[in-house]
Design a protein around this nucleic acid. Structure first.
Lengths: 200, 200
DNA sequence: GTCTATAAATTGATAGAC
DNA sequence: GTCTATCAATTTATAGAC
């Protein structure tokens, strides 16, 4: 990148790196304390910056939380792209494997999705929309499977969809309390298979 | 009760009622804010008492949280008493119905079980023990069902036990975001049935 | 962009009167 | 058993120097 560029060399990337550091620190503190009890002082300390410096990048605590969501959202978007329903279920199992290897991110979402059930929580609308969208998407996949005769007759597509989401959320909690007790992806794969006429 | 009793008439019951009021208020605030962000001032205000008066009944915030757990524990103990495994699963469905009618208590446990996955949370040991005990109990029931040939061969007792717990926890979150979308007990009953060789 | 200094409010908890 | 008054610590956010 030549020096004629308006932005001096390294300036942007250094600032962007600082932003990433802050978001890492914020995710860690939010996941442990929840939103309300998380302190900007601790986030700033973890990020190696002062509170005033932190407030320069993110003016308010809520904006900081939203920035953490935006980032993880961008990272997750690449995960569910296949249109083949079986492939999508396999992606879900892969996602469980990723969750098992990243307890911090797992706890962040577990804590936020629980406390954001309160209507006045800053992430309430985000999660309400997110759950509604996920139900729709997974439901569509199971509906396709049913039309192909690959869903067991005892289970409706909606039941399978809500069950998948509940199993995913619930197994993460269990794994956080006892990571050695079971394999999250293996358990999820076998339970999803129990809804199908063929193994996953 | 004659006046010669050391405890004056009505004194105990009034104090006990105040305690109940405080625990109600505490459960409401803890469920919305989590433990760390819950303020004693708000709890005291809801209970119609000063903060100092609150501290007279419960010396510390942690003791207050533990008292809320103790009470709900006592209330829930009467729920799972049957030794017949099918009856125990039916009790689980009834419990889901009760949860659906009490979103405040539901959110209290959802929020606490998520944030207590952090090892330094005041309720961490409580939930870790609670989850381990529940796995054991439900596992034993499904093992009995398997021995009786009432559990589908594709599902192991441990998978069924962890699935039940995950479904229970996960469906509660979904119901908190969209209470009208589905019937929690009906969904749980049908999903549990899908693990069995006979409808529940 | 990052800092020090500071504001204004709130925190959990205690002391002591009644 | 409940109160007022108070404590020291921490909270989010801002102002202004560099």
């Amino acid at each position: 990148m030549p020096e004629t560029t308006p932005r001096r060399r390294g300036e942007y990337s250094k600032s962007a790196q600082r932003r990433e550091d802050i978001l890492d620190a914020a995710a860690a503190v939010f996941s442990r304390a929840g939103f309300g009890a998380a302190s900007l002082a601790e986030i700033a300390e973890r990020a190696g910056i002062s509170v005033a410096g932190l407030n320069h990048h993110f003016a308010t605590k809520t904006q900081l939380l939203e920035a953490v969501f935006d980032r993880t959202q961008r990272q997750a978007e690449t995960f569910f792209q296949s249109s083949d329903p079986i492939e999508l279920l396999r992606s879900a199992v892969s996602l469980a494997a990723q969750n098992a290897s990243d307890p911090l991110a797992t706890r962040f979402f577990a804590v936020m999705s629980a406390e954001a059930t309160s209507p006045d929580h800053p992430a309430h609308d985000y999660f309400q929309r997110r759950y509604a969208e996920t139900v729709e998407q997974v439901l569509a996949s199971f509906a396709t499977l049913r039309d192909q005769g690959r869903l067991r007759a005892e289970v409706t597509p909606e039941e399978a969809a809500r069950a998948y989401m509940a199993l995913s959320d619930g197994l993460q909690i269990q794994a956080l309390y006892d990571p050695e007790a079971f394999s999250q992806p293996a358990m999820l794969r076998r339970l999803l298979s129990s809804f199908l006429t063929e193994p996953l």
